[in-house]
Simulated assay, not measured.
Amino acid sequence: MLRQPLQLHFTNVPSPGAIELAARRRIRWMEQVYPAVLEWNLNVQSVDFDDATGTFAATTRARIVGGDVLSGNAQASDPLGAVRLAFNQLESALESEHDDARSRAVEWLNAMKRRIAHRVEHE
């Protein structure tokens, strides 16, 4: 069971049930690793090109604490492949955001330590 809401949108995609199951399984794992996510979104659609090859586009989005929305986009010849690649991109974006947040927290903590040390020196 997912902890955060998931919105799914499928347009001209075969086997949406299998895609939904795979997406839910991936999101359950990602929720354990990235607890800052407040909402998930997956959009999968068939893309028509002139050469008439079956191509699918997938877009994944995650709204995180603070209101930012991170996303991943991919295209593949099968919908499950497109979803997997889009989730890989989203996971990279979440990892980058996590690292940035950690760096900002360390900078803030160091600034507080300097302020406290400065006050102690001048008392």
Rank of each mutant, 00 (worst) to 15 (best):
D68S: 12
R102N: 14
M112A: 10
A111V: 00
R115F: 05
T60E: 03
V37Y: 04
L70M: 12
L38K: 13
E39M: 08
G72C: 03
T55C: 01
D78Y: 05
R63F: 05
A62P: 01
A58H: 01
A86D: 02
V44G: 03
D100H: 13
N43S: 15
E31M: 11
R102F: 14
V37C: 08
W29A: 15
F87K: 09
S92L: 13
V47N: 02
V69A: 10
F56N: 00
D50A: 14
V83R: 03
L85H: 08
W108K: 03
G81L: 03
T53F: 02
S71W: 06
G72I: 06
E97Q: 15
V65L: 14
S92T: 11
V65P: 00
N41S: 14
S71M: 12
Q32K: 14
T59Y: 07
S46F: 05
G72Y: 04
M30D: 06
V106G: 00
Q75C: 00
D48W: 06
A86L: 06
G72F: 00
R114S: 11
E107A: 14
V47I: 06
Q45K: 09
D51C: 05
G81Y: 04
W29M: 12
N43D: 15
L94Q: 04
W108S: 12
S46L: 10
E91C: 04
I116Y: 08
D50K: 03
G81A: 04
A86Y: 01
D50N: 07
N41P: 00
Q75T: 09
Q45V: 04
T60R: 05
V44W: 02
A74D: 01
A82E: 05
L94E: 08
H98L: 12
A105N: 13
R104K: 14
G81F: 03
T53Y: 01
W29E: 15
K113C: 10
Q75V: 02
L85D: 02
A86R: 01
M112P: 08
G54I: 02
A101Q: 14
G81E: 04
A111F: 02
D50I: 05
A101W: 11
E107L: 13
P35K: 13
A62T: 03
Q45H: 07
E31V: 09
A86C: 07
L94G: 08
A101L: 12
L109K: 12
V106S: 09
N41I: 00
Q45T: 01
A93W: 09
A74M: 05
D99I: 12
A111M: 10
E91P: 01
L90I: 07
D100R: 15
R115E: 10
N88Y: 10
Y34C: 10
D68K: 15
N88T: 12
A111E: 13
L94K: 00
F49W: 03
N110D: 15
I64L: 10
E97N: 13
S77A: 11
R84W: 10
R61N: 13
V83T: 07
N110T: 12
V106C: 08
L109R: 14
Y34M: 10
A82Y: 04
V65Q: 15
V37H: 07
W108Q: 13
P35L: 10
D50T: 08
N73Q: 14
I64E: 05
Y34H: 15
H98Q: 15
Q45C: 05
P79K: 02
L70Q: 06
